[in-house]
Design a protein around this nucleic acid. Structure first.
Lengths: 345, 345
DNA sequence: TTGTAAGCGTTATCAG
DNA sequence: CTGATAACGCTTACAA
């Protein structure tokens, strides 16, 4: 049978002939406690093998030191980097993470939000599902004053902070880069316009065209889920465009770009010679595909870290999610061969 | 100011003129409760906006419904699939996950184990860091009878179950496949022999050589961390072997294989013509590299799911981590162009 | 089938 | 700087 006596602050108190209150205070560096007793308390705690009971503590203090996370999917390179950053930042501050995935479904996201609410997270970090149309399911949090911070796939709202990159500017730069490299018919592989990341990228794309006197052509926008299959499908669409095929493709993520490239390469189309390519995310596959894919790099790790830090600051009253509207992180255009039509490199 | 009154079982009790005990029982489908009162209780609960307080519950019942997870890294495709599987299985059973990463450091792993212990997880799921040498840091769990299950990177131990694939057999098959395709000097890119996954893969490799009357050559084993840099380094090593270069490479993961291939291709070496390649994991990059990489597929999702299910079964007394020693999941050799020297396809 | 009452281990409040 | 005491909201003997 395993040993089973849990040591409590009362055991420590008895051991030292002081009160449990003092032990409680000593353990959490209360200012009004004698340095010496504090030291004794810690020694006794270590010696007796004490571990604090978070449940009793949460029950009483109403703080859980837990942050809820809702993401579309766990298994993408970007999102796992985000989580790595979150975990790092949270563990530094002794916060826990409860993680759930919406699997890109608004319905599941609603269920997850309820679960998080019932788990009494101190705050919630959300990146929205592909087809979420509103954020009613977070109302309960707003009403209770539980902070909600959106990251990457955000929703503009007066009660919450957003953590994003400047998708508009990044897309503008990508498109301009393609134009500078001799593209004049650029196709855009985009995602659901409900999501800021995709609508902003489309907007940046359009503006760059406009600024370079290129007419926007509806037919050159291909909206999809941006997965492997969608990339291949985009390629098939391009191949069917016998009349005036695009001479460049800007995809809103690397997966779609890469799978589109692979399909086109099979048919003998040369990249970037015939069609130049650029993606978004700097996924590991962008460095493997030949030619290597021009893309936009932004650190998932940094996004995750920023989200958690900003949440904890808010919880500590250092900042406020209502006043801080948006935090914009850096992103960089990474130029690789796939977009260099004029092989000047 | 946000609304702040939390509804408790007492509120429901008062509302219905019954006792809190009955409410508590009704809420959790206690057998000895009138169907009708049960229904009333649920209605009142919904109506009043009740949410149960897990802390009070855990405090009293000593169950946390939380499973701790320690993994080397969050941001690899394999591990994020594992987590996805775990999250799915856990949420089906209303369990929480607390996730932490050791960042491949034994030291951090020890710290994480302590944290998990203090968080009072009901059970612990672990995949070991690259250089962990012993598992003393889990002793506290064994002593308290808290189940520990290892997955993927496991440690054989009488007190715990392991969830793995048959790395030996898979490596044997890969090596045999390379031999069957005309390789006779096969290099192995391996990892730390402390880790079962790498030692078993080496063992399978050796046995396959032996069974085909090929002498094992120490010089053809390249041990590394199997990351991008290590792959490139392995390529440099191969290029230096002017005398008798290998005609095949079996890497213990896809990253090392792919980065090695890329470096070799730069120098004009043809794959699989000059050197055939095989990896391990079926990472997304294995489908992008040209030629596509032969590899071993095994589902991270399934591993994660199996680990959580087996943990929960144990916690429910359905199975026992001490008696179930090992659970072996399926893996498959995926043959792609990189290993097909005799282009018979 | 339902109720009473005693905790679970902590922290907040008030008092000294 | 320290202490007594009362919650926090739930579960569980025990009793009815």
């Amino acid at each position: 049978m395993p040993d089973d006596k849990e040591i409590t602050i009362y055991d420590i108190a008895k051991h030292l002939n002081i009160s449990a209150t003092t032990v409680s205070r000593g353990l959490k560096d209360h200012p009004a406690i004698n340095k010496n007793t504090r030291k004794k308390i810690f020694e006794a705690a270590r010696h007796l093998g004490y571990r604090s009971n978070t449940f009793a503590s949460s029950l009483r203090s109403k703080k859980t030191y837990t942050i809820g996370i809702i993401v579309p999917r766990l298994n993408s390179y970007f999102m796992s980097s985000v989580l790595a950053g979150m975990e790092d930042a949270a563990s530094r501050e002794n916060y826990n993470l409860i993680i759930s995935q919406s699997l890109e479904s608004a319905e599941k996201e609603v269920a997850n939000a309820h679960t998080m609410y019932n788990k009494r997270v101190d705050g919630l970090l959300v990146s929205l599902a592909y087809d979420t149309e509103n954020i009613h399911h977070f109302e309960a949090f707003f009403r209770k004053g539980i902070p909600v911070i959106f990251f990457d796939r955000v929703y503009s709202h007066t009660e919450s902070t957003s953590i994003v990159i400047d998708n508009y500017a990044a897309a503008y730069d990508v498109t301009k880069h393609l134009i500078d490299n001799g593209c004049s018919r650029i196709m855009h592989l985009g995602g659901n316009m409900l999501r800021n990341v995709y609508s902003e990228r489309l907007r940046g794309y359009k503006q760059a065209l406009r600024d370079h006197k290129i007419n926007f052509d509806e037919k050159l926008v291909f909206i999809s889920k941006l997965n492997e299959e969608a990339g291949a499908e985009a390629a098939r669409t391009i191949l069917k465009m016998t009349a005036k095929q695009p001479d460049g493709v800007f995809a809103a993520n690397d997966t779609a770009a890469v799978y589109c490239m692979m399909k086109l390469k099979e048919t003998g189309i040369r990249i970037p010679g015939d069609i130049a390519f650029a993606g978004f995310n700097n996924d590991p596959i962008s460095k493997i595909i030949e030619p290597n894919l021009t893309t936009v790099n932004y650190s998932g790790y940094d996004v995750g870290e920023a989200a958690v830090i900003s949440m904890i600051n808010h919880l500590n009253g250092i900042s406020n999610v209502k006043t801080t509207h948006t935090i914009i992180l850096r992103s960089d255009l990474i130029v690789r061969e796939s977009s260099l039509k004029n092989k000047s490199l």
